[in-house]
């Protein structure tokens, strides 16, 4: 008579079998490919050891583009930086973002926080914005345009937020972004909402009217599909938008499938200002509430 078989032991034995040596040809192929593949850039200040905490929020270079003198010229519109006058051709305030910031990213005390401080990020100027950090556990670099809860932006329960200013190139398909970048950027709330509503696979909500610090705009909720396979996307990246400049890759790229974005966009004296709040189904409601409180506390100078 046959002795009873232990199913668990059978499964364990089954899984213990199989190939366990990677062929040298694969290593050679990888080596050949990486020689031709650039590594994704991360902004200089965030790469210093004390600032790595927020680097993996993964918003590629922080993102900040103000609108844009070149764009304004092309459109024939006056400067959108408030008030009439000649359109400058360069920003007088651009700082060297490749040098380390004097203030390291760290867990922040509750209270006022300079989300952006007008200094340039990635070679582009920002507006000055402050927010109120309502609870412990938020990481950020003053002026760095990013806040991350508990140093965790990943699925299943991460949370973070990032600010953008100015013109954005919203890809028609965030997975096939390399071939779906539009010829012209969006530079108004309406244009942004229209582009996001049309973006493939995002299941965008109906935009709702909002006001931030007295400035009107709209917000919309977007989703990264749960079954999105980033490795099937261009350069393994699922990205919502890029910014002006030679680098056409996404500056807002997503961390994981299932990520939810609340995009808050307002017009600040003619400058499209976007705060992207990102979380997951597993993110505690309390953290989501904190993020919304942070957004609603924003002030623009």
């Amino acid at each position: 008579m046959t002795a009873p078989r232990d199913p668990d032991r059978l499964i364990g034995a089954f899984l213990s079998e199989g190939e366990e040596r990677l062929d040298d040809q694969v290593y050679d192929a990888v080596r050949a490919r990486i020689e031709q593949t650039r590594q994704r850039a991360v902004l200089g200040p965030w790469r210093t050891p004390t600032m790595n905490k927020i680097a993996t929020f993964g918003f590629a270079a922080a993102a900040v583009v103000i609108a844009v003198f070149l764009g304004a010229q092309l459109l024939g519109s006056p400067s959108r930086f408030g008030g009439p006058g000649p359109v400058p051709t360069t920003s007088p305030e651009i700082s060297d973002t490749r040098s380390p910031s004097p203030t390291p990213a760290a867990v922040l005390p509750e209270g006022l926080f300079a989300l952006t401080d007008g200094r340039a990020l990635d070679g582009m100027p920002t507006l000055s914005t402050t927010v109120t950090v309502p609870a412990p556990g938020w990481y950020g670099e003053p002026g760095g345009a990013i806040l991350v809860k508990n140093d965790n932006s990943a699925a299943p329960d991460g949370a973070g937020m990032i600010a953008f200013f100015g013109e954005l190139y919203v890809y028609a398909d965030p997975c096939q972004w390399a071939t779906t970048r539009p010829d012209l950027p969006v530079s108004t709330v309406d244009e942004l909402m229209e582009a996001l509503a049309a973006q493939a696979s995002r299941d965008a909500s109906e935009p709702v009217d909002i006001t931030l610090d007295g400035h009107t705009g709209q917000s919309v909720i977007l989703h990264v599909p749960d079954d999105a396979v980033f490795t099937e996307c261009d350069q393994g990246t699922f990205g919502s938008w890029g910014v002006p400049g030679a680098d056409r890759s996404p500056f807002r790229y997503h961390q994981d499938p299932g990520q939810i974005d609340e995009v808050w966009a307002v017009d600040v004296d003619g400058v499209l200002t976007v705060i992207d709040v990102a979380y997951y189904d597993g993110t505690p409601q309390a953290v989501r509430d904190e993020m919304r409180a942070i957004v609603e506390s924003v002030t623009f100078e």
Binding site: E19, L22, D23, V26, A29, V30, R33, I34, T37, R38, Q39, R40, A41, V42, R47, N52, K53, A55, T56, G58, T231, Q235, G236
Partner: peptide, 25 residues
């Protein structure tokens, strides 16, 4: 499947190279 597995490992290593700067630890 061995062929699929090799392809997956190759893809993963190439993507890891591209994303490596985002690894903080």
């Amino acid at each position: 499947d061995l062929d699929l597995a090799e392809d997956a490992v190759q893809s993963a290593l190439i993507l890891a190279w591209a994303e490596l700067r985002a690894l903080r630890d």
